[in-house]
Amino acid sequence: MSHVSQLDSLTAFLRGCVPKRAMQSFSSEMTSLKTIPAGKSMGMEQERLSIIRYDAELIWERFPFRECDPRLMMALLEVWLASDSADRELFSHVGLSSADPDWDIELIDEETAIVTVTVPMAEELIIVPDDAGDIPYQGKQYRLADAEIWTALSALIYAPGADVPGATQ
């Protein structure tokens, strides 16, 4: 299974929405990386070892602000942050109450600017058993994985003494 980080997801989203001319001098990277102990059994043999806290740094070294309205970048970032791809629930686990992006814009000339956006991110570090895995943990081999969460879409609930369809007495 190939892991797609939030940074990878955000970068792909921007590359798909922003005009190519504006993405020519674009880079994205993780900075201020920390792991926060948060071990937890996630069910289905999944183990969360920690939460990874980092800043996603998005940099446009020659952003053509006359050709591409900078507000487009802001709107796209807000849309991505509000999407399911941006799992912001972990922020309370790492002591962050706000995850607002920081924007820094430095004009180069009348056509271009250096634009740097720093976005706080938090992701779970999940492992699952795998005999061919690279991670020895509690006497077994594991591999990195994305958390797999199953959600019940419906349920039958029976109360004691209630008639159960198909049951015989």
Rank of each mutant, 00 (worst) to 15 (best):
L77I: 13
T112S: 13
E47A: 02
K20L: 09
R48A: 04
M74I: 07
A113L: 12
S97D: 05
H93I: 06
G16L: 08
S50W: 01
G39R: 10
S41R: 02
L58P: 04
A113W: 11
F26I: 13
F26D: 04
S32D: 09
E57L: 13
E57P: 04
A22S: 09
T31N: 15
R21M: 02
K20N: 03
E110F: 06
M44S: 05
Q24R: 03
M23P: 00
P101D: 07
T31H: 12
E45P: 02
S83G: 08
P19E: 05
I108G: 10
D87Y: 12
R71Q: 09
Y54T: 05
R15S: 13
L90H: 10
L107F: 15
P37E: 08
M23Y: 02
L77Q: 11
M23R: 03
R53Q: 13
A86M: 03
S83M: 05
E110A: 15
D104W: 10
A75H: 01
Y54Q: 11
E29L: 12
P101C: 00
S92W: 02
A113C: 15
T31Y: 09
A99K: 08
D87N: 13
R48V: 13
Y54D: 02
T35P: 06
P64S: 04
V79L: 13
L58K: 05
D104Y: 07
P64E: 05
D104G: 11
E47Y: 01
R71E: 09
W103E: 07
I36C: 01
I51D: 07
I59P: 08
T35Y: 06
C17H: 12
R15W: 15
D84K: 03
S25H: 03
G95Y: 02
A113T: 08
K40Q: 07
I52A: 07
A75R: 04
F13Q: 04
E110C: 14
S97Q: 04
D102P: 12
D102G: 11
G39W: 01
C68H: 00
I52P: 00
A99C: 11
W80A: 05
R48S: 09
I52G: 02
A75C: 08
R48E: 06
S50P: 02
S41D: 08
M42Q: 12
P37W: 01
D87G: 11
M44L: 02
W103Q: 05
S41P: 03
I105G: 12
R71F: 11
T35C: 12
E106H: 11
E110V: 07
H93V: 08
D100E: 12
L90R: 14
A22Y: 00
I51M: 03
L77V: 14
K40G: 04
R88F: 13
L76E: 10
Q46V: 00
I108L: 14
E111R: 09
E57Q: 14
E61Y: 09
E61S: 06
W80M: 09
I108F: 11
M44Q: 09
S92C: 02
I51V: 15
E67H: 01
L90F: 15
P64G: 10
S25W: 11
R53D: 13
S41F: 00
A113I: 15
E45I: 08
M42L: 08
L58W: 09
E78R: 01
P70L: 01
I108Y: 14
A82T: 04
A86G: 12
